[in-house]
Amino acid sequence: MIHHPGNVFVVSAPSGAGKSTLAQRLVQSVPDLIFSISFTTRKPRPGEVDGRDYFFIDEDRFDAMVREGGFVEWVQVYGHRYGTGKEWLNGVLATGLDVLLDIETTGALNLRRAIPDARMIFILPPSAAALEQRLRSRGKDSDEQIGIRMRHARHEMELYHAYDYLVMNDDLELAYRQFESIVYATRTSRERMAPVAQRILEGF
């Protein structure tokens, strides 16, 4: 196998667009691609394991990492903080593995500033009406909560122009094939493959 410093893929979407389904399938199906493991100040939920689902740390340690520039990006969501560790990410990328970050738009834009060549992917719902129907079909949220999610979804949709690729999740299989193709196309880009081509050329 050809080993090279890994690629960074970022995926964002409004709640209900199907991002988690697509991202989980991608990591299970594509070799040498792993999920990023975020640091968080929230407590573990039942079944969650430190170092597998998240790195669970306290507020003081999070503050120290912020001061020391230890995060590529970090955000506060619903009273808890989440961040991508710079040392962890660099260590994984150095092995040649690709990393997929499932983060919301604010974190994604912060990461883009830190890693300009990260590939940014936004999952689009087919329409606002379809998104609202998906949220209602879950049966988990009140009308008020759905209204809040829809307003937040509009805010996220307004940032679509900051992403490199837009994948509409209307047909799940088609959306997955498009999502997967972005990873393989990035791996074969001229910028990534130039060192390999140069080594082959030197053999002539």
Results as ranks from 00 to 15, higher is better:
V30G: 12
A17S: 11
R61E: 06
D143G: 13
L101T: 13
G18N: 08
S142Q: 04
F122N: 00
W88S: 08
T105F: 08
Y78E: 14
V77N: 15
Y163A: 04
G70Y: 02
L97V: 05
Q133L: 11
S15E: 15
L22E: 01
A114V: 07
D171A: 02
V72T: 04
Y165P: 06
Y176A: 00
R149T: 05
D98T: 00
K43Y: 04
F179A: 04
I57T: 02
L101E: 13
V30D: 13
H161R: 13
D53A: 12
M157V: 04
A118R: 01
R136Q: 13
R177T: 04
I123N: 00
R67W: 10
S127G: 02
G69H: 07
L33A: 11
S142D: 05
F35N: 12
D53Q: 10
D170A: 11
M65P: 13
T186M: 07
W74F: 15
E104N: 12
T21S: 01
P44A: 04
W88H: 06
Y82V: 10
F204V: 05
P195D: 10
S29C: 14
R113W: 11
Y78G: 10
L174W: 08
D50E: 14
R52G: 11
L135G: 07
F56P: 14
Q145N: 09
H80I: 02
G6C: 09
Q24G: 14
P46A: 13
L33H: 10
V167C: 00
G6R: 07
R61A: 03
D32I: 08
A162T: 07
P125Q: 10
S181K: 13
G47D: 06
A118V: 00
R187Y: 01
M1N: 10
T186V: 02
M65N: 14
Y78C: 11
S20I: 04
G51A: 01
L111A: 07
I146L: 03
A185E: 15
L89Q: 04
G139A: 13
R119G: 04
R138Y: 14
T40R: 03
Q198Y: 08
I115C: 04
E202L: 07
V10Y: 09
R134W: 03
P46Q: 10
Q76V: 03
V11C: 14
T95Q: 10
D60M: 05
